[in-house]
């Protein structure tokens, strides 16, 4: 299934940076927040949040290096 075919949110995904990693980050963001809501401050939730934030920054860095 294509992301932009999802009802309501589809057009939003279709309008982004046309990059699957960012689309994945956009989709996984609310899921990680839900996980934190259930698990509170645990090792698993901490690793998930840290991976997300580090992954986000690292990916922008990666795009910069591949661009230049």
């Amino acid at each position: 299934m294509r992301l932009d075919s999802i009802p309501v949110l589809g057009p939003l995904f279709g309008a982004g940076a046309d990059d699957h990693v960012f689309d994945l980050l956009l989709l996984s963001g609310p899921l990680i927040i839900c996980v934190i809501g259930f698990l509170h401050r645990s090792f698993v939730s901490f690793v998930l949040a840290l991976s997300y934030a580090a992954g986000f920054v690292a990916y922008i860095g990666y795009r910069y290096t591949t661009m230049s």
Binding site: F13, A15, A17, L25, L26, G29, I33
Partner: peptide, 15 residues
């Protein structure tokens, strides 16, 4: 696209 950027940054900021 503005909303796409804003949503992405919101999740990042929350975490």
């Amino acid at each position: 696209t503005i909303w796409w950027i804003f949503l992405l940054f919101t999740f990042f900021s929350i975490l």
